[in-house]
């Protein structure tokens, strides 16, 4: 009863707080819609000229004014896929080690190191990729892959060190700390009681990890993965340094390619014809839509997942 008595000043503060919070929340929505509208408005030339064909055309010729997004979309998806294929299992292993197995005296410095990795600016990763990783790939990794896998088109072409594979590797290294940090926190939140119950029933560490920790933390793990995905798909400078920047769709992972953001970073400054600029803005629009679709897919999947796990219990 006592708690419900408000003074007038309290009520005013309350409503002000409510209003401010609401404004801030709405502002996010407004900003998102405004960005979308602006992207559509500025790409109308390209939208009108190329229509849906823009998505499937691999042409990119500023001289004749013929543009298509296929090579950029392909490069964006492939480099991100490579990055996640490498980073997700590694992150899970690191997080599990830190939470389940490592002595705190080891876990703490390793944890700090991982958080520090996440704070390194992307341009540093790019320079490292170009000056350290690329020569190493060209001299050791790529010739080795070609020796082992022979004539697979996936590993064909001259080993230049730069290209799709190197871009994917740099991206993997960049998203690794993000995913690890999130997943580690999630695993640490799994109630000790649940784990101890597992051990009490005679389960091994691996069994507890798989059936209790991983399952309990599934939502959070996915959240971490999508955070990494979000960073990888829009990453610009690090990719631009090592991907080779070529508007081409190649079967080989050694070949150069490009991503939507690397194309924007490279070509925006000198795009003086209106159609050229418009095509670049449309690329930005496509990236916006891709990220949006991935978010929706992630939400749907999470919902299904939790329902299934819920009935499983």
């Amino acid at each position: 009863m006592q708690r419900r008595v408000h003074t007038r000043a309290q009520a005013l503060a309350e409503s002000t707080f409510h209003g401010t919070a609401l404004t801030c929340a709405v502002f996010v929505l407004v900003a998102m819609v405004a960005i979308f509208a602006e992207l559509v408005r500025n790409s109308h030339l390209s939208l009108a000229k190329f229509g849906w064909g823009f998505l499937t055309s691999a042409a990119w010729n500023p001289v004749t004014g013929d543009y298509g997004a296929a090579s950029s979309i392909f490069g964006t998806l492939v480099s991100t896929a490579i990055a996640l294929l490498i980073a997700v299992p590694l992150s899970l292993a690191i997080a599990l080690f830190l939470v389940e197995m490592a002595h705190p005296r080891v876990a703490r410095p390793v944890g700090y190191a991982i958080e520090l990795l996440a704070a390194i600016p992307s341009i540093i990763y790019g320079m490292w990729g170009l000056f350290v990783l690329a020569p190493f790939m060209a001299d050791h990794v790529q010739p080795y892959l070609q020796r082992v896998f022979g004539n697979l088109p996936l590993f064909s072409g001259p080993p230049m060190g730069i290209g799709m594979l190197s871009a994917g590797l740099v991206l993997a290294l960049m998203v690794l700390p993000f995913i690890t940090a999130v997943v580690r926190d999630i695993f640490a939140l799994v109630p000790t009681v649940m784990k101890e119950a597992g051990y009490g029933m005679g389960a091994t560490t691996w069994e507890v990890t798989r059936k209790v920790t991983l399952r309990h933390g599934m939502r959070g793990v996915l959240g971490g993965v999508f955070l990494g995905l979000g960073r990888a798909i829009g990453e610009t400078m690090a990719v631009t340094f090592v991907i080779g920047n070529d508007h081409r769709i190649a079967a080989s992972l050694f070949a150069s390619g490009n991503t939507i953001s690397s194309t924007l970073a490279n070509e925006f400054t000198e795009a003086s014809q209106p159609l050229y600029l418009s095509a670049l803005v449309e690329l930005g629009l496509i990236l916006f839509v891709i990220t949006f679709l991935i978010q929706i897919a992630a939400q749907l999947w999470l919902k299904r997942m939790s329902r299934r796990l819920g009935t499983d219990k």
């Binding site: 042409a59 990119w60 010729n61 500023p62 001289v63 004749t64 230049m160 730069i162 290209g163 631009t240 340094f241 080779g244 920047n245 070529d246 508007h247 150069s256 490009n258 970073a265 490279n266 070509e267 000198e270 795009a271």
Partner: peptide, 11 residues
């Protein structure tokens, strides 16, 4: 900027 027949691009 042109449509290069071959090669890799540096920034």
């Amino acid at each position: 900027a042109v449509s290069w027949p071959v090669g890799v691009g540096g920034k």
